[in-house]
Design a protein around this nucleic acid. Sequence first.
RNA 1: GGCGCUAUCGUCUAGGGGUUAGGACGUGAGAUUCUCAAUCUCAAAACCCGGGUUCGAUUCCCGGUAGCGCUACCA
Length: 509
Amino acid sequence: MSQLMSHLRVRFAPSPTGYLHVGGARTALYNWLYARQHGGVFILRIEDTDADRSKPELETAILESLDWLGLGWDEGPFRQSERLDRYREIAADLERQGAAYPCFCSPETLQEKRARAEVERRPSKYDGACRGLDESDWARLKAEGRPYALRFSVPDEGSTAFEDQVFGNVELANNEIEDFVLVRSDGQPTYHLGVVADDLDMRVTDVIRGADHISNTPKQLLIYRALGAQSPRFAHLPLILGPDKQRLSKRHGATSVGAYRESGILPEALRNFLALLGWAPPAEGGEPREILTLEEMVKTFSLAAVSRSNAVFDPDKLAWMNSEYLRRLPPERLWPLVEGELRAAGVWNQDARATASPDGADRERFQAAARLLQSRARTLKDFSGWGRAFFSDDFSHDPEAVKKFWKDPAVPRLLEDLGERLAAVEPFALTETERVLRALADERSVKAGVLINATRVALTGQAVAPSLFEVMLVLGRERVVARLRRAASFLKREVPGHSKPMPVDVHEV
RNA sequence: GGCGCUAUCGUCUAGGGGUUAGGACGUGAGAUUCUCAAUCUCAAAACCCGGGUUCGAUUCCCGGUAGCGCUACCA
């Protein structure tokens, strides 16, 4: 049994005509899970037979995205562009045995016929003009040097069926299939020839790919049959749709894995989210669980449990899942990620050598700040966004926050006095700072909340931040006092009556 | 147009001939509080329509409708 299972071979075969999008990523993930589950081999193949649209840098980007997602491959990457001779060999075989024939129709002619069929509301299937020619015509036209494509000769009768691991039995009448092209007139193989040849040569046992290929499968089956070869098993995956239920595309915003990476999504979160798009783990008694480790996915994944209907990509749920993963991140993983984000966003100098990572007390403060923000961050971006003031003195004050929490005329004086008292409090710790603040509020007969909120704005520039005394601890006495003083002096000078709080950047004062 | 596939809350899904049709995201309300997030409690929210089979269909079958896919010398 396990002997047999270890022969399982799957592949992911992206085309380097675009970045790795979330649909492709999910296909790769399912292939990967299936391979791991069965102790099989995961092959990576680059389908670059469309020379015009394929770009080497896109191939690199795809590899990077897979790597980032943690979906390593066991063999490859193989490139179809490096196997052209092999495809021609197989094509020649097919032609020799009469399963394929040369077609001399010009693209223009074909286009016209198709257009006419459309107008007359007939199926626009290739009419088989060149199939009707006889051997001598083919030879003569070839000798004349007329360019030709090689077409597969699809049987007129019967039907082609297969048992899809996800969709079940799928059947298509052969007369619905046109004589499709195997080799273009420039000698390049088409997708159909390429996949079959590769899956055969690479001894692929299970083809797991997008459902957009389901209608193509009979064509490929016909090629296998003509070659006298056994076809692999097929499993088609429902498509991923945008919120408008249209196939996900650029106009839906971010669709590439790279874009999510850049927007601060964790690979494990995207992976988990994608796994659940079209698949749910078995209920196994208790409450269904959604946060799954890779091991759990490998253990419980099954093609039979994959949904047959398309799924809408919900960015909100991805964001939620990301926050779950962010929260669970162990500190040693969190810190470098945050550091990377701060550099990428320019909060810290981009050049790592120019500004070395903070050390000593600063290092500790950085680590504490990152952990403090960890539980309320939704993406890595939040650390450089609303969390900016925790990592840099160069931050601005949110006008809304200022308006809301600095409007009380007592604020400037309160902030100033608080600054002075905090400068002297010993030790500078949670209970002591809180005691000092509450005592001050008491003396001046203001609610502690008023002072707390005003102070939060002074220290972080935001109306929304973690618990104030935690914030103080993380920033350290020096910064806290400095920021309070600056805020107080700014307020007293610039907005005496507080009639119109201005958006301010305290550092420019 | 032809052919194929699909159809459970707004979204992802579980379930399955008899269930109060379950969970998650999101949404609303409340609790907590120092703002927000988190957390906790509660709430609203679904079996596309029509036939059949059956004692009984959301579940099985057929039809319709809708959506998606394919219909290229793209993949």
